[in-house]
Design a binder for these strands. Sequence first.
DNA 1: CACCCAAAATTGGTCATACCAATTATACGG
DNA 2: CCGTATAATTGGTATGACCAATTTTGGGTG
Lengths: 246, 246
Amino acid sequence: MDNNIENIENNVVKSVEKNDTSKKTYEAIIDSIKTDIMNGKIKPGQKLPPERELAKKFNVSRTSIREALRTLEILGVIKSVQGSGNYITGDVEKSLIESMSMMFLLQQIDSLEFFQFREALELKAAMLAVQNIDDEKIKKLEELVAKMGESEDEATRSALDKQLHDTIAAASKNSIIIQILNILSEVISQDIKERRSEILSDPKNAKRLQRIHEEMVYSLKQRDARATYTAFSKHFDLIAEYIRTS
Amino acid sequence: MDNNIENIENNVVKSVEKNDTSKKTYEAIIDSIKTDIMNGKIKPGQKLPPERELAKKFNVSRTSIREALRTLEILGVIKSVQGSGNYITGDVEKSLIESMSMMFLLQQIDSLEFFQFREALELKAAMLAVQNIDDEKIKKLEELVAKMGESEDEATRSALDKQLHDTIAAASKNSIIIQILNILSEVISQDIKERRSEILSDPKNAKRLQRIHEEMVYSLKQRDARATYTAFSKHFDLIAEYIRTS
DNA sequence: CACCCAAAATTGGTCATACCAATTATACGG
DNA sequence: CCGTATAATTGGTATGACCAATTTTGGGTG
């Protein structure tokens, strides 16, 4: 292991020593590690010093160090591996999933609001895709829509639908939007999932959706921003219509 | 204190006892508390049993309980008050701010990407505002724009600008979008802030922006969705133009 | 009786130490 | 030189103790 971090900032240590601002010890530790990340002293992939060593450096107990490390782990900043060490990671997605789930759990977010949030990102992704998508991806989208048209099974169509949306999101080339959309897929309330499959199990709606999908892909192929916006809006209206009447 | 939680699920306790799925103890505890929240057994405002009692109930050490509580605190699920107890809160916003800051810190997110993400939400907020905004809010927007037109000072204009955007966001009536936009304001990279004020200190740009703001508010007043979309798009293009050439 | 205040009990915050469990490093034997 | 058994390292958990803030209790006082 040659990627150890040898020297945690000593001036930061100082601020921890006296618990200056009535901050909890573990919070001070977190701040100091965050600072080191910001300053580039700590980078993803690196291993932190052993907990016992950190405890000595910060002049606190291992308990406090561990509480700090736990929260950093939840935030997706580090990953603890028993017997090996604590490693810096860039895997914040998991943490965002946790936070957002909690947000929806605790705040009783309305399904429609959730849906609108998602719509905002998908629409933007589509508009960016208009500018960035290449012919290969267009071809893939066309294939997906075709398959969806042929498929009789709702579950299959649903899986293809997800692929379709993922592909479009990817074409946006905006990694934040891609990530947040991924997260939303994870967090999506069971409520909406059920309602969605309910809506689409009606052949009439499925057919309507199929036409809209074709329109979406066609407008992307034409690189027509306005048509893309219209097509995607229709798509959401179809779903939102039903959510609203629940 | 009559809002104590008397009985943490016993079946959940069982799953913790034997550390069944190679999960860390504290993770199992978190899951069980989350489950209780989902089932409505635990609601915001309530106080959890004392740590020592939880430790007994879960058959684990207080250490493990505390590690679980720390992460729940970071997630914004609970708040620990020394001498009093651990209380359920719904304050997840702080946690989202933490997560997103970390995401941007660790992933070196492009300023443009960040800006596009924000744009997605502001655009949607505007489109929802078209449907939901009332005359009173319209009046407020008009006043803000007027003040901005008169103001000579860049800092003042910037503050008014923030108010303008906040008001529009509020008019969307979508609490997720409002919250995330708030979070983004907190997290926004210094980079963008500086660039923004740099752009707007040029009187020519400030004047352009002023016209666009007027257009935005006017189209909202007319409840004209298409015009609103166009006006807001222009607004973002003005900023994005400069971010791109940085 | 109602109110206020000091003492006691409760409860989270931190520490020190010990031991377990998984991983990694080392040393030995082929 | 390689592979394997053993030792050392390192995170995970458990106890028990004590500190610090809050809450509760029980008098004492008006």
